[in-house]
Computed example of a mutant assay.
Amino acid sequence: MTAQTSAPVRGPHGAARTRAPAGRTRGRPPGRWQGPAAAGAFLALLTGGWQVMALALDSVLVPGVDAIASEVLRLVADPRFYSDLGVTVQRVLLGFALAFAAALVVGIAMGRSPLARRFFEPAVLIGLTVPGLVWALLCVIWFGVALINPVMAVALSSAPALTLSVYQGTRATDAQLLEMAHVYRFTTRDRLRYLWLPSLAPALFGGARLGLSLAWKVIVLVEIFGMSSGVGASINGEFAAQNVAGVLAWTVLFAAVMALVEYGVLQGLENRAGRWRKVASV
C-alpha cells in the first residue's frame, strides 16, 4: 500500500493550502444506521399522525393504530393469510417474468434500430397511458378465472414501463463497447450476457421497481374483480364485512412485503450487479 500525501494547492490569492487526501470527503461521513433511522422516523411520524387523526375524528371509518395492529396480528396468526399471499406473489412473479422477457427483447431492439423504435413506440405509449383498472377488467372479461388472467394483467401493466427503461438504457450504452463486441465477433448470447445485461443493470433495476409497483396494484384489482383467492379477494371480503381495520391491516402487510422485496431482494441484487462498476472506478 502507498501512503496518501497532501499536495499544496494555490488559492485564488496565491496562498498555499493543503489538498485533502484522495478518497476523503469533507464533513462527517454518513453513519451506517442513518438510513434505517430516517425510515423509522418517517414510519413513526406516519403512525403518530394517523393516531391523532383517528382520535380527532372518532369514527369507525378511521380506526386507531391499536385496532389496525390487532387486525394485523389476527391475519398473521391465520394460515389462510400465507396461502393467499403465496398465491398473489406467484401470480405477480409469473406476470413480471413474462413482462421482463418481452421488455428486454423489445427495448434493446428499439434502442438499436430506428425502424423497431418507430414500430413499437405507439404500443409503449398506449401501454403507459392505459390505467391498470382497465387492464384488470379486460383480462377478467377475456380470460375469466384462469391463471392466465392475473398473469396477463400484470404483464400488460408492467411491460411498457420496463420496455421504456430498457430502451433508455440501451441508448446510453457506451458505443465503444458495442464496437468492441462487433470487432471480436461476439455471439448474440455473449453480447446479451457480457455487454447488454451489465450495461443495462441500472435501467433494469429502475424499471423493475416501477414495474413491480404497478404489478402489485393491478394484481389486487384483478383478484378483487375476478378471483376467489389471493390478497385482493381477502381485501374484498374485509370490505364486504365493512371491516375498515381489516382492509388497512392487509394494506400494511402488503406494504411490508413490498419493502421486503425492495430492501431484501432488489437492492441486494443491484449491489451485486454493480460490483464491476465499483471495481472499475478504483
Rank of each mutant, 00 (worst) to 15 (best):
A159G: 00
A181F: 03
I235G: 02
A38G: 08
R10F: 09
Q51H: 14
G11P: 01
G40T: 03
G11F: 06
E262W: 10
N149R: 07
A255H: 01
L195G: 05
R26S: 14
S281L: 14
I224Y: 13
G232M: 05
L147Q: 13
A240I: 08
F42H: 02
G206M: 07
L85G: 08
S83W: 14
R10V: 14
A99K: 08
L212I: 11
A255D: 06
P122N: 07
A233P: 00
F96K: 01
P63Q: 10
V106W: 02
V282Q: 11
S165F: 11
Y263T: 09
W135M: 06
A109D: 03
E223C: 04
M53A: 15
A20N: 04
P12S: 15
A116P: 00
L192M: 15
F143N: 01
L210H: 03
I126G: 02
M53Q: 12
F205N: 04
A136L: 06
V134N: 04
V220C: 03
A249T: 06
L177H: 07
D58V: 04
V140D: 01
A20K: 04
V265E: 06
E179S: 11
S281Y: 07
A249C: 08
L200Y: 05
Y167T: 10
G230W: 02
S70V: 08
R275G: 10
M258H: 00
Y263D: 02
G274A: 13
L73C: 11
M53I: 07
D190L: 14
R117F: 12
L115A: 15
S158N: 03
G169C: 05
K217T: 14
I235L: 13
L210W: 05
S165L: 06
P30Y: 10
G14K: 05
A15V: 11
P150S: 07
